[in-house]
Simulated assay, not measured.
Amino acid sequence: MRPVSLFLNVLWLLFGGVWMGAGWLLAAVIMAITIVGLPWARAAVTIAIYTLLPFGYTVVPRARLGRSDIGTGPLGLIGNLIWLVLAGWWLALAHLLTAICLAITIIGLPFAWAHLKLAGLALWPIGQEVVPT
């Protein structure tokens, strides 16, 4: 990890990264408890790790990487719709509220932008992959 990314990730943890990472982990635990939600629990844990250290990584659709699997087809669409109803909307709302609070300050603007990107990911996470930049 580059020094700039490391520095931004440390600041990120102070400005909402820990809070939202815990939210993603809570969503993963709730999904795992239901047994039916196990497929979404794995995705939520992956995104929780990304939420804790977002700088130096990016999220791209697996279809763009040339990977065709169950998450990139019609079942991925259905999975994303179920996720949206069960957990996606409240994670996206939490990211949005955190972004608004951070956007009030000039120092928080880059972190607000990162929270907005994560809000979009919270709405539609299935079929996405976290890759280094």
Score class of each variant (00 low, 15 high):
12 W>V: 06
12 W>E: 12
13 L>H: 03
13 L>A: 09
14 L>T: 07
14 L>H: 04
14 L>V: 10
14 L>R: 11
14 L>D: 05
15 F>V: 12
15 F>W: 15
15 F>M: 08
16 G>N: 07
16 G>Y: 03
16 G>F: 05
17 G>S: 13
17 G>N: 06
18 V>I: 09
18 V>S: 04
18 V>P: 06
18 V>W: 15
18 V>Y: 11
18 V>C: 12
19 W>H: 15
19 W>N: 02
19 W>D: 08
20 M>D: 00
20 M>W: 11
20 M>L: 15
20 M>Y: 14
21 G>F: 13
21 G>K: 14
22 A>S: 10
22 A>P: 13
22 A>Q: 07
23 G>A: 03
23 G>K: 03
24 W>E: 03
24 W>Y: 04
24 W>G: 00
24 W>T: 05
24 W>K: 01
24 W>F: 06
25 L>N: 12
25 L>Y: 11
25 L>W: 07
25 L>Q: 05
25 L>C: 12
26 L>Y: 10
26 L>F: 02
26 L>W: 08
27 A>L: 00
27 A>D: 00
27 A>M: 01
27 A>S: 08
28 A>E: 08
28 A>L: 12
28 A>D: 01
29 V>K: 10
29 V>C: 04
29 V>R: 09
30 I>C: 01
30 I>T: 03
30 I>G: 03
31 M>L: 14
31 M>W: 02
32 A>W: 01
32 A>S: 11
32 A>G: 11
32 A>Q: 06
32 A>F: 02
33 I>R: 01
33 I>C: 10
33 I>E: 02
33 I>K: 02
33 I>A: 01
33 I>F: 10
34 T>E: 01
35 I>Y: 01
35 I>T: 15
35 I>N: 00
35 I>C: 09
36 V>K: 00
36 V>E: 01
36 V>A: 04
36 V>H: 00
36 V>F: 09
37 G>Y: 00
37 G>K: 11
38 L>R: 14
38 L>M: 14
38 L>G: 13
38 L>I: 15
39 P>C: 05
39 P>Y: 09
39 P>N: 15
39 P>S: 14
39 P>I: 06
40 W>E: 05
40 W>P: 06
40 W>R: 06
40 W>M: 04
41 A>T: 10
41 A>D: 10
41 A>G: 12
41 A>Q: 13
41 A>K: 08
41 A>R: 01
41 A>F: 08
42 R>L: 15
42 R>F: 09
42 R>D: 10
42 R>G: 05
43 A>K: 15
43 A>D: 14
44 A>K: 00
44 A>R: 01
44 A>M: 03
45 V>S: 02
45 V>R: 06
46 T>D: 11
46 T>C: 05
46 T>W: 05
46 T>E: 15
46 T>I: 05
46 T>P: 00
46 T>S: 06
47 I>A: 13
47 I>Q: 04
47 I>E: 08
47 I>V: 12
48 A>N: 13
48 A>D: 03
48 A>I: 00
48 A>G: 09
49 I>M: 14
49 I>S: 02
50 Y>F: 15
50 Y>R: 00
51 T>M: 05
51 T>V: 13
51 T>R: 11
51 T>Y: 10
51 T>S: 09
